[in-house]
Write a protein that binds this DNA or RNA. Structure first.
Lengths: 257, 257
DNA sequence: CGCGGTATTGAATCAAGTCAAACTTCGTGG
DNA sequence: CCACGAAGTTTGACTTGATTCAATACCGCG
């Protein structure tokens, strides 16, 4: 397909896009999804693949040939509903594992598109599977990955069913905050990589509702928001909203405690 | 339908509930989730466990020790939202695999309760894991299982986000119909095992809405419904609704066939 | 028989969606 | 570098689908 597009336009600094086995511990990308990955004894060939903003890693229906671990950037996995328009399922970021359908020998189930310039580690499925057969720890990691993925989906289900719009958005912001924090970035100030429409699709809301909710949070002094620049001002209050306490009513008029 | 094996209650003294390795092909329970399970060469100890209506297979937070495959019956997996009330995540039935958290060494993530008298196959996790290490096919099945589970969750996500209430219920009914059909039961006439409240929780609706929607479908002549007894009369029209075409307008007015 | 859990139905309310318009930002190419 | 058009965002007015509250009916069961 479009292998050429973003494939190996590798940084001039590192001539080695290919490697085998053990990555340095500092390469934290796989630490999260596959902690024991670095400990794999046998050679495990891998490739890096760069994606420009807007480029697709793969699309639904394509034969799946590899697993991917996000090294940096932010992507969007989505699926076209039968009524045509897309529904956003997740925003994979550093450390997230993608393309697990490959393990089941099934075609790609979703579209995955880069929201900003990103890079993923490519793990050919056959290599991975054979590594799995040799390495219980890797299997374990994989199970854990599936477990946490399912858990996240479940939580997402909770969000969509029976949760007010404000609650959903508050959760979304806090989740993003946590993820950025885990990367060592600021949990209070960050840039959204996705549009209002994409957030809305993810949360089961319209883009207008998302916009309105942002404005509301801003008016209430809980966040600062300018386009995609976000700053969380009252995390405690946000947590309260996320927990369902719609508003402790006139939260902190002056109390920044 | 419920084979005699079902009649073995579970007195601790009964040696008959234990077995090893290859189950008969007729024991279709694992065919669905784990096709190659029956082909496992080495001994794979298993136990059957019966659950009375209302009994819990496990509860969220409990240490997980085994995988389960439903042999017959209908269960409910749910999770208490932080606001207290429970959210139904799934209605596992024959062939469905439960408790995959065990593989990741994590505690049970959900509550699982029997909606009617049910039986599950118990597969101790250590045995299962060792069988996995020896049997690529079993691993493959497992991957496939995770793949389809994720796919189902995704579909469920689609339902909850951006889908009208009528659409959700229509989908729910058709999905049930398909599952029953796969079991060899009638896809047109069946009994709901769950209450309106549970359906509502599953679909992200209130029980009143569910009730109303049932009545509406009945009035429109698409289904016959009496409490939990369901008969699908106009499957095509239901599919149309499920697909988003709200109503092909005055469907078959007169055809109560 | 009457009781408790379950289901249906109605009326009023409200949250979120829809439609529409104005405005800002961003990227592209002149 | 600026201008332009496309895309993204905000905001308003209005509509509506679904919830909420509440009353009633029903089934199954002891």
């Amino acid at each position: 397909m479009n292998m050429q597009t973003a494939l190996r336009s590798v940084p001039p600094t590192s001539p080695m896009v290919r490697g085998a086995a053990r990555l340095e511990a500092s390469d934290s990308c796989q630490q999260i999804a596959l902690p024991s990955f670095a400990a794999v004894e046998s050679a495990m060939p891998w490739t890096a693949r760069r994606l420009r903003r807007g480029a697709y890693l793969y699309r639904a229906g394509m034969p799946s040939t590899a697993l991917y671990v996000v090294r940096f950037g932010c992507l969007k996995s989505s699926l076209a509903a039968d009524d045509g328009d897309e529904r956003v399922l997740d925003f994979p970021m550093r450390g997230d594992l993608l393309g697990a359908d490959a393990l089941a020998g099934q075609p790609c189930a979703t579209d995955v598109q880069a929201l900003e310039d990103s890079e993923v580690l490519v793990l050919p499925v056959s290599d991975f599977e054979s590594a799995c057969s040799r390495t219980p720890g890797l299997r374990q990691d994989l199970y854990r990955h599936f477990g946490t993925t399912l858990r996240k989906e479940r939580e997402h289900l909770m969000r969509l069913g029976g949760m007010r719009a404000g609650q959903r958005l508050a959760r979304f912001l806090l989740e993003l905050s946590d993820r950025f924090a885990a990367f060592g970035y600021s949990p209070r100030v960050f840039n959204l990589r996705m549009s209002r429409a994409e957030i809305g699709s993810y949360l089961g809301l319209t883009l207008e509702s998302v916009s309105r909710l942002f404005s509301r949070l801003k008016d209430d002094g809980l966040i600062r928001v300018d386009l995609r620049k976000i700053e969380l001002l009252e995390v405690a209050a946000l947590r309260a909203i996320a927990a369902g306490h719609e508003l402790p009513h006139e939260v902190a008029s002056g109390a920044v405690a």
